[in-house]
Design a protein around this nucleic acid. Structure first.
Lengths: 194, 194
DNA sequence: GACACCTTACTGACCAGTAAGTAGAGTGCT
DNA sequence: AGCACTCTACTTACTGGTCAGTAAGGTGTC
């Protein structure tokens, strides 16, 4: 009957959840298995049971992000481009509110050169997907007349993505940065609300 | 007469130079005194002689950035805002060309929550100065009619700063990102060259 | 002989990762 | 019902490496 929560234990999931918090606040190099095990109330080796190498944990984290992001895209598929952009802004807000975390692409691209190779591959694929999605929004936004901007959809989509990634990082030093930049991105895209 | 190069040895300076490369490619948490000493051909303790704690080295690095940046501003003071922006773009290019390094503000804001307190203070001041300078460019650019953009000078200045910081990070995964975003920033500011 | 600038030699903390053992839950056989 | 077996999910105990940081000694220069 596998009553209640899970056929397999949920320890694996809880490890991923804690590791995610640590990744987004401290970065991959600056958290250890001890951080996770002490928070979870288990011994260090228990983490190694589920994720033998730290890179296994890292890859699993990114793969989960990719699955989530695909689900996020699918859920927003029916919305118009402007609303999709606002949904993306909402994601950024929730990172920021959660102890000034930054977005995964920000930490992964910043630490990219020090990541194990398997993580680099996964991270590059993930960031590619996000970038393509941003470009898709600006392309459709212009096509349906909702957005009006200078430059190509490709370039403005990448700038929007890049500006938001930077905004979350700067928000750690300057409280207003995220809101300011969100407002400015709307302005640049010719959207209401700035 | 302190002939030639230096009254004090230049070891201190060479340590800072090596540490700077390491900071911009690997981040503060991901480089060690061994990285520096092996590259420099001295023993570990020699680094500790010049910078007793790693945070001393970190603070010295940021202070040097701040001095350099002030000099950079002073040198560009006579140029028009558009040319100042291009000079800033040039800085970003040189980071990228140097083994895909990212800008100091990018690494410092990303690692901010794990930095020692003295470094946090210095980093926050540094990033503030850079942000104010970006805003100053866009403000004067609009005032003299060279730039024409939607939104306030404050917001567009921050977006430009943030987008460029993100662009250098994304360029580690996507080779064209930096050029694309530079071109788009010009377009958004109503400048020629896109 | 004082000082700047190193060296050798060390400490203790933390790190990822491993090996071997164990408790408990399920499963199948008699 | 009782017992053996197996598997999952841990535990304790450990290794070897890396880390920042320190103490004490040496060497050359003014």
């Amino acid at each position: 009957m596998t009553q209640g929560s899970d056929p397999k234990t949920d320890t694996r999931k809880r490890i991923l959840d804690i590791a995610e918090q640590l990744l987004l606040s401290r970065g991959f190099n600056a958290f250890s298995y001890q951080h996770i095990s002490s928070e979870l109330g288990v011994r260090n080796a228990a983490i190694h049971y589920h994720f033998p190498k730290k890179s296994d944990l890292g890859v699993a984290l990114i793969q989960r992000y990719r699955r989530r992001f695909q689900r996020f895209i699918d859920q927003q598929a029916a919305l118009d481009p402007g609303a999709q952009l606002e949904a993306y802004f909402g994601l950024s807000d929730s990172y920021y509110r959660q102890h000034r975390q930054i977005c995964p692409s920000g930490i992964l691209s910043t630490e990219f050169l020090t990541l194990p190779e398997e993580m680099q591959r996964e991270a590059a694929a993930f960031i590619d997907e996000m970038r393509l999605w941003a470009v898709d929004i600006t392309r459709r936004g212009a096509a349906c007349g909702q957005m009006r901007y200078a430059g190509t959809p490709e370039a403005i989509g990448m700038m929007l993505f890049s500006a938001l990634q930077g905004a979350l990082q700067l928000a750690r030093i300057d409280d207003g940065a995220l809101d300011t930049i969100k407002r400015q991105v709307r302005a640049v895209l010719g959207l209401p609300g700035h």
